[in-house]
Design a protein around this nucleic acid. Structure first.
Length: 333
DNA sequence: TTCCGACAGTGGGGTCGCAAT
DNA sequence: ATTGCGACCCCACTATCGGAA
């Protein structure tokens, strides 16, 4: 995915800097971390569960681009329109497009909108989206990426007229721990900690950190898929939980293992092979190999999907202190 | 020396569109 | 007509390497 995907004329219209450095529009990305801190040198923003979008405007030419530089101007025509009638004629800004389900941003809602490529279809979809802007990279012909984040956010707030569907991303100073706790209580995905005096850096940087609200539970290992390519041991573990004595499918987990565990645990699984699925109903998983449901795994994830599977699952470890029969789906009260 | 950023590779759920069956 | 697959979104994680700290 290089500049070659985009016509030269298109690149030119995105500005001289884009033409000179095709990667320059890669968004700044946060690093996931386990520490939670309060610090006067940092500010803290809500973490949105949506689609990352950068907007480039030069007079009449306006483009909305995703993280992978896909043009989504026709997917979000109402956002393009709102940005096109801003008094400031020339800017590059960064933000997140979100859809709401009640008070919480819903990626599932947004997904139905995200795929639409025709502006008229998008407007008719009935799925309302908002664009939470949180950074300003260029304004009026000036590259301001080197300015401290606080100054960029100040300029962003002053230069734009914010009214729906455009929203300024508020932040809280210093009190990261408090804000994080509040975020989790409200059911948000987490918060982003940003070093307040840091410049905008393209790509991943520790000047931005993700504090994600922990979600996890034990699940029963019911089988596995074979490894692909250079992968050792197994591909993914097939997980389940008990519901009134019946083992229900909860999806797969395929990350969080190192090579030694992949090799070693495959051997232990082999000793427990059985021909039929312990899950009821048996999920349709290509190449699945079933085992007696004896192992319990601790799994971290972001949420249960509408289809009853884990979203963003990762393996955290085996649990020896919990009987498989005691594993049930934990539901928020 | 240690740490960090960048890359490649493997894995997840979900949606859509198109090609193969 | 159905199925499978890749291309997109959202991700987590491991392994490796080279250069910065």
């Amino acid at each position: 995915m290089m500049a070659g995907d985009m016509p030269v004329a298109e690149m030119d219209r995105l500005g001289a800097q884009a033409a000179a450095h095709p990667e320059w529009c890669a968004p700044m990305l946060a690093v996931l971390t386990e520490e939670r801190f309060s610090d006067p040198d940092w500010l803290f923003e809500r973490k949105f569960d949506g689609e990352r979008v950068l907007v480039f405007r030069e007079a009449d030419h306006l483009r909305l681009l995703t993280r992978n530089r896909k043009d989504v101007s026709d997917t979000y025509p109402e956002l393009a329109e709102a940005l096109a009638c801003q008094p400031v004629q020339d800017f590059v800004a960064d933000g997140e497009v979100v859809a709401f389900d009640g008070k919480v941003t819903s990626f599932a809602c947004l997904q139905r909108r995200m795929q639409i490529k025709d502006a008229a279809d998008a407007r008719a979809s009935g799925i309302h989206v908002f664009f939470y802007l949180f950074d300003l990279l260029h304004v009026s012909g000036r590259n301001i990426e080197g300015l401290p984040l606080r100054q960029r956010k100040n300029l962003l707030r002053k230069v734009f007229r914010f009214c729906d569907p455009l929203r300024y991303t508020q932040h809280r100073n210093e009190l990261g721990k408090d804000y994080f706790q509040m975020a989790c209580e409200k059911g948000w995905e987490g918060i982003i900690a940003k070093r307040a005096d840091a410049p905008y850096r393209h790509g991943r940087s520790r000047d931005w950190l993700k504090f994600k609200c922990a979600k996890g539970q034990e699940l029963v290992i019911c089988g596995f898929t074979p490894p692909k390519g250079e992968r050792k041991g197994f591909g993914a573990l097939l997980l389940g939980y008990y519901e009134e004595g019946i083992l229900r499918y909860a999806g797969k987990v395929g990350t969080g293992f190192d090579d030694a565990f992949l090799d070693d645990f495959r051997k232990r699984l082999e000793k427990r092979r059985r021909d039929t699925s312990p899950l009821d109903p048996a999920p349709d998983v290509a190449g699945a190999i079933w085992v007696r449901p004896e192992f319990v795994a601790e799994i971290g994830f972001t949420e249960w999907t509408e289809h009853g599977k884990l979203r963003h699952p990762r393996f955290l470890g085996l649990r020896r202190d919990k009987a498989a029969e005691d594993v049930v789906r934990e539901r928020p009260s």
